[in-house]
Amino acid sequence: MEEHQEVEQHHLQQVLEFYPFEINEVKLLSSRSGRTTWEVDTNEGKKILKQASMKPERMLFIAGAHQHLYNNGLAITPIHETKSGGICIGAGSLGYVLYDKVEGSEVIYYNKEQMLKAMEFAGNFYQASIGYLPAEESKTRGRLGKWHKLFRWKLQELEGNKTIAESYPTDAFSLLFLQHVDEMIQRAKEALAALDEQVYQEASKEVSSLRGFCQQDFTLARFTEVDGSLFMKELHSITYDLPTRDLRIILNKMMKKFSVWDDQLVFDLLRAYHKTNPLSENYYKILNVDLLFPHLFCAIGHKYFLAQKRSWSDEKYIWALQNIIALEQSKGDFLKRYPFIYRDIISGHGEGN
């Protein structure tokens, strides 16, 4: 163990020597899900060194996007270049990036003011992302025009998990899953069919020409609040996709905390986003479709039947499923009441007024 730590320390030292800073101290912050971060105390303040298990070409794609956002004025921490001008370092199957550590207040889901600021930031994020042309060596990632494939794969897995659940007649999770899976399969089929409408193809072509990108996982954990404004601490990952994808992900995350789809809060959040990145009606039609698809229900089934969360007890799995069922059902009711979200956002009508 000691020998392994010495090798790691030597490797870290080699990586940090590429940067034009005097290193005083290095402290491990976290190591999980293929990502490790260290706090690096330098002669020019504290920095964060992130190591990710990904090809350097992918890290270059993300680091270039980080720099693009910063150069376009987004409130995101500065990324540091190496002595030779590189924005990241590759070492076999690992990539490294170094950026400033930003001190601020925690941003939480139960603080409505911060949630509204996060939505405004999400709009600014997409605006700042437009026009990103990565370096030629980058390995890019995009989901434009691929939603049919993604929805179809998730639907097939959902139907497969139904079959698995039927084979466990005494399993409490499976029994609860089976009570609602047919409704979720029907919603998934409706959402998949709706992607055949022309608005999805048109929006995909428009966004492709804009060269704007989304995050893979839009979450408040990546923010800190400094002097009343939100600041992005890091850029985890990106993909070329419709801006509504980030909207669906962050709305699902926020509402899941409350175990219910809160109409008034949702309208307030969407109006906050619309201030900084006003979208046309077609994009909100696509958002309706993406919200209709039961992503969260699919995800909890995926986790359970593949035993991805080995540390979770059966009780925790059941609690998570109950929470998601309540959320998905209230979201379904919301979509029936407001089939034209865009008109209610623009007019100021609806529960959010």
Rank of each mutant, 00 (worst) to 15 (best):
E3M: 02
Q5A: 10
Q5P: 00
Q5H: 07
L12P: 02
Q14D: 12
V15A: 05
V15M: 04
V15Q: 05
L16I: 09
Y19H: 13
E22H: 05
E25Q: 12
S31A: 14
S33F: 08
R35K: 15
T36W: 04
E39D: 12
V40P: 05
D41R: 14
T42G: 02
Q51H: 11
A52S: 10
K55T: 00
E57Q: 03
R58Q: 03
G64V: 02
H68A: 01
N72A: 08
A75G: 07
A75H: 12
T77C: 09
T82A: 06
K83P: 10
K83I: 05
K83V: 03
G86L: 13
G90P: 04
A91Q: 15
L94T: 04
G95Y: 08
L98M: 06
G104E: 04
G104Y: 13
E106P: 08
V107N: 12
I108R: 15
Y109G: 06
Q114K: 13
L116D: 14
K117I: 14
A118F: 09
E120T: 05
Y126H: 03
Q127I: 08
P134S: 14
P134M: 01
A135L: 01
A135R: 06
E136Q: 11
E137W: 00
K139W: 00
R141W: 04
G142K: 15
K149R: 14
L150P: 02
W153M: 12
E157K: 04
K162F: 00
I164Y: 02
S167D: 09
Y168N: 06
P169S: 07
A172Y: 08
F173T: 14
S174A: 14
L178Y: 02
L178D: 02
L178P: 05
L178E: 11
Q179N: 15
I185D: 07
Q186Y: 05
R187F: 07
L192W: 10
A193S: 14
D196S: 13
E197A: 09
E197Q: 13
Q201N: 08
E202A: 15
R211S: 07
R211I: 09
F213H: 11
C214P: 06
T219Y: 10
F223M: 12
L230D: 06
K233F: 08
H236I: 13
L242E: 05
P243G: 09
R245D: 00
M254A: 15
M254Y: 11
K256P: 08
K256T: 11
F267Q: 07
D268A: 12
L269N: 13
L270F: 07
R271N: 10
A272T: 11
Y273I: 11
P278G: 11
L291Y: 06
F293T: 12
P294R: 12
H295Q: 14
I300L: 10
Q308H: 13
R310E: 09
S311A: 06
S313M: 09
E315C: 06
E315I: 03
L327C: 08
S330V: 08
G332T: 02
G332E: 01
Y338H: 00
I341L: 10
Y342N: 10
Y342T: 05
I346L: 04
E351L: 06
E351M: 01
N353R: 02
